[in-house]
Amino acid sequence: MTTALRGRAADRSRAAGLARPGRRRRGRPVALFLAPFLVPFAAFYLAPIGYTLYQSLFRMHRSGLGLTAPTQVFAGLSNYATALGDADFRGSLLRVLLIGLVQVPLMLLIALGLALLLDAKSTLFKRFFRLAFFLPYALPGVVGAIMWSYLVAPGLSPISAAARHLGLHLDLTSNAMLAPTIGNMLTWGWTGYNMLIIYSALQAIPAELSEAATMDGCSAFGIAWRIKVPLVRPALVLTTVFSIIGTAQLYNEPAILHNVAPNLSSTYTPIYAAYDAVNANNFNAAAAESVILALLAFVLSFGFLKLVQRKGAAL
C-alpha cells in the first residue's frame, strides 16, 4: 500500500473516531479495513463504468490517407445516435426484449408452481425433486450451452431424430426456431435457481398460518394462492429483477449456439453486437451500445420495482 493511501486512511479513521463520541479514543481502522475491498472495487467495477461512459462520447478520427495515427476527438452523443440508428443493434434490443417478455414470466411461473408443489405437505420425494430441479444450475453455464447446442444441432439432435421417426422435419437451429431454442436453454438453466429462492422464502412462512387456514376450510390451492404467494412477493420481485438483468446480458448461449448454427447473426443480442463492434476495433461504438443496454436494463428493472411498490401500497 502506498503511503498516500495510508495517510488518507488515518485521516478517515480519525473522522470515524469523532463520529462516535463518548467512546474510548482509539484508532478506528474503518478506512484501513474497507480499503482492501474498496480499492479493487473502484479499479475493477467503477473505473470500467467511467471508462465506458467516457469512451462513448469520443470517436477515432482517421486522416484521409490513413498515413498518420488516428486521433481521438470529442463526438458528443453521435455514437449514441449511430447505435440507435443501426437497424442491427435495434433489432438485437428488440429480440432480447421479446425473449425476455415471453421467457421470464414463463420461467418464473414454472419456478413458483414447482416451489409451491414442493412446499405442500403431502408431496412425496421432495429431496429428490429439489435436487433434480436444481441440477442444471450446478452445471457451468458454458457446459449447459454446449450440451444444448448439440441437443439441437442438425444431424446430432436426438429431438430432431425423434421428430423424424414421427415423420416430421424439425430443425431447432432454423432462423424461426433460434429464439425459442435460446429461450428453452435459459428456462432449463435458471428455473431451478429461481425455484430454490422462492422455495426458501416459502419455508420461512410459519406453519401455523396454513394450519389455521385449513381449519377455516381453505383448500390447499386457496392457501397457496391467498396466503403463500402474497407472502413470497419479495422473492418473486427479486427473481424478476435478476431475470431482467440476466436477459439483458444474454451472450453465452447465442455465442455457443453459433458454433452449430452459423445462421445466427453476430449481432443477435446487444452484448454480442457490442463485442462485434470491439472486434471491428470500434470501441467507441461498443461503449455507446453498452451504455444504452445498461440504461435499458436499469430502467426496466427499476421500473418494475416502482410498479410493484405502488401496487403493493394500494393493496
Partner: peptide, 27 residues
C-alpha cells in the same frame, strides 16, 4: 462500525450487484 458514508458505501456495493457483468469485461 458507525462512520460517515457508511450507508452510501453499502448502497454503492449493492448497486454493483445489479450491474450486468459482461458490460465490465470489454472496458
Amino acid at each position: 462500525y458507525r462512520f460517515r458514508g457508511r450507508e452510501f458505501t453499502f448502497n454503492s456495493v449493492l448497486a454493483a450487484v445489479l450491474v450486468p457483468q459482461p458490460l465490465l469485461a470489454v472496458p
